[in-house]
Write a protein that binds this DNA or RNA. Sequence first.
DNA 1: CACATGATCGCCT
DNA 2: GGCGATCATGTGG
Length: 210
Amino acid sequence: MKNARKTDVAPDARLAIGREPTGFRELPRSFFLRDTAAVARDLVGLWFARRHEGIWYAARIVETEAYLGSIDAAAHTWRGRRTTRVEPMYKVGGHLYVFLIYGMYHCANVVTCPAEIGEAVLLRAAEGPQGTPSKLLSGPGRLCTALGITVAFSGADLLAEGDVRIFRRSTSAASIGVSARIGVDYAGEAKDWPLRFFDLDSPAVSRKSR
DNA sequence: CACATGATCGCCT
DNA sequence: GGCGATCATGTGG
């Protein structure tokens, strides 16, 4: 099998929460149909979850970035670019868009807004349970590695009772910091837009503010 | 701590 | 043919 692609990667066992996501609750579709920066901010503190071979795995999101579609030089949909890879970004809010970067890492995004808009939120970092190293999910590539997220999930509906979901949980609200986005220096004026949101109290945030 | 570099390949021009 | 919404590792201060 020379061209075998890994398509069913197991999540890190330390993120397992059991056969049922007890204590976790669904979000309505309307959550994802709002202003993308607002969705990015509100995703901090929610849970990104995946089921693999009957077991659920989950991590608490602590860092996100908004990508504003056609007007945003940092976005894959800048100027309305429409290709096979990016097509999931034009689905209705609540879908997943995953891409491969640098040939070896994946980045997971939550699509926002109504269909055909092309905006999304990059999940940049998350936390595992007490005792797991803070680096385990710190950074978009590591987050995907730890949860076994690959391009096989691109286009998946997070609200279709499927194997990838965003959950909420009754917890105290996080203190949110805001900064420019990471790694988009090529994006002209857009590189300075304050579209990165992070939990000020989390050790798992990928970098200090800029 | 602050850089600097290499890895590795799908995507787009 | 060039490069990227990254990361691990290495060097030097």
